[in-house]
Design a protein around this nucleic acid. Structure first.
Lengths: 238, 238
DNA sequence: CATCATACTGAACATGCATTCAGTAGCGGG
DNA sequence: CCCGCTACTGAATGCATGTTCAGTATGATG
């Protein structure tokens, strides 16, 4: 465990010591989670003493916050960098191709469940971005209109991020590594695209469903709705 | 924090002491996660001493395994109970209506990320179930056929469970509580149903995409595929 | 050169934790 | 009545971990 760096302080490492500590922490946190990585291990990975970690960041928790901020900033940046190169339906897909993408995604997957204000903020930005990209997509005839654009974008992002968080299960169930390179994700991407492209229901079944659904998509949900006959993923009505 | 039970050992509690401890542990683990709930808190919630918890289960870790098994068994049972009452596209939806459903879902959400052999096993069963239900749905004209039924079922389950795991973000982004009652989930269910019903892409765009996709859906992914132009959720190509 | 701040360390320290231990109470079987 | 067994407890024990502390080196500044 904790197979990260080693103590070798690559001679040509121009990063400042705090930066090296922060980067080591990001790798460790991504690999084992925050709770299960002692400061000792981070210090070793950065080639310094545990005391120095505290000296620079004040406490392990403040170090974590610094990591959150840095990762959020990196993702924001790579997001805007990849803007021109054609956005995909998965906002994180572009990240996988970058050199440091996978560790970033692993860190994100951990932090999404641990909960961090900065990552939560990032998530809200991603939803907002998705809404506007999808509006463009709608305008150019690629995407369908939605009765609730924000809701749709949020649900798609939750699914995408949720799959990322459950990447271990994705590996077991589908044999793909969601933290890896995009060209090895066909086992995930193809079914996903199938659903994104056509849905899973027949047009008639969907028609019947919408007729039975309570009205008002965008206004905040009212209490008049009875239990819906079905929901998100996995089967049909008997 | 840890607002669970209290020490009151309801006089009419016919559960055995180990069962009471296990149930208390499930509640605590669901609420705060395994790592962040000391044995002491579980013992308090069950009205016993920490030493007794160890006495009955051997260690905290074995207690966790017992909880995993019990939760998996409960979910299996409620799943088969609700079979007759019309399965939905979300395999967990029925659980929400049961009295003890929400805590079970919360426990599941925690354990899915912590990783547990028994819950992983449960997940595989759920995929298998989903495949057969969706085959029925296809036969009765409700669902579309898929080029990769297992992949589709797995992806849908991953999305559904992923959203569950990220329920805190769902609350913030959509204002719904995925751990709560189904009739308060419209903000999630409606966009989800929209996607499940029709997909997000226009038929023409999907047509163009499938034409560009590499072939062979069911055979295990070969290494010949180049990067796919896009993926799962959030936008389109510029 | 003297001074001072800063980077840094090894060895403590304090705390929270799971687990152990020695012992008590109660109870069923001989 | 007594023996042994089980449920159970309060107080240790030992360990891992975050943090502090006293002190050293280094390099800039006067």
């Amino acid at each position: 465990m904790h197979s990260v760096a080693g103590v070798a302080p690559t001679p040509a490492d121009d990063r400042s010591t705090p930066a090296r500590i922060r980067d080591a922490a990001i790798r460790c946190f991504a690999e084992a989670g925050v709770a299960r990585t002692p400061v000792r291990v981070i210090a070793e990975a950065a080639g310094v003493s545990p005391a120095l970690v505290i000296h620079h960041f004040g406490s392990k928790d403040e170090l974590r916050v610094a990591c959150d901020r840095h990762v959020a900033a990196l993702i924001r940046q790579q997001k805007s960098d990849s803007m021109q190169a054609g956005a995909s339906l998965d906002p994180m897909m572009a990240l996988r191709t970058y050199r440091d993408g996978p560790p970033l995604l692993a860190y994100l997957a951990r932090t999404l469940v641990d909960g961090s204000p900065h990552v939560s903020e990032l998530l809200e930005e991603l939803v907002a971005d998705a809404v506007s990209y999808m509006a463009e997509g709608e305008a150019s005839g690629l995407l369908r209109a939605s009765g609730d654009p924000h809701g749709r974008a949020a649900v798609l992002l939750l699914w995408s991020m949720g799959a990322l968080v459950l990447h271990e299960h994705a590996t077991r169930l589908l044999g793909v590594d969601l933290l890896g390179q995009p060209d090895q994700l066909l086992g995930y991407v193809r079914p996903a695209m199938e659903v994104m492209g056509q849905g899973v229901m027949t047009p008639e079944a969907y028609e019947r469903l919408t007729a039975a659904m309570p009205a008002e998509p965008t206004t905040s949900a009212r209490g008049d709705a009875r239990a819906t006959p079905s929901d998100a993923p996995a089967s049909q009505e008997t």
